[in-house]
Amino acid sequence: MSFAFTPERKRLFKELVKRYPDKRSVTLPALHLAQEQEGYLGRETIEALARMLGSAPSTLMDTVSFYTMFTTRPRGKYLLQVCQTLACSLAGADQVVDHISKRHQIKVGETTPDGKFTLLKVECLGSCGTAPVVQINDDYYERLTLDKVDRILDKLA
């Protein structure tokens, strides 16, 4: 299970290396590129990226493990990240979590058996004015009600 960028991503990576004043600064962009491609950052991916970035796998893992968006294990096709910090919590984030949890029969941190949904509670998504909020992959869904949650998930199902 070795890792390589697709030709398009490889081009992007090379472009980034040219634009940044040093190679190690390309770490986060490269990790994003790789995770978008692979869905997660596995051991081989990290080893390969470390080589590309001229660093040690351990040093790269030090970085990877610090950030909540990076994952070293595969997740569902749709990552449901429900904000649980104050504004969302006041606006009923817990009910949203419970609702999704029941709907898909998964606990927080789990993935549905069909590999479709992973449910996570996350900290402040920076969208407190439109609480409660769930981020599904790249998109924010705001001012949630339980009905709205159902409609969104129905579309993805």
Partner: peptide, 19 residues
């Protein structure tokens, strides 16, 4: 990539440096 502390300016700089 998901870290509040990277809003602090020197945490941010470290992060920008890939750490």
């Amino acid at each position: 990539a998901g870290a509040y502390i990277c809003g602090e300016e020197t945490g941010l700089i470290e992060s920008l440096e890939g750490k």
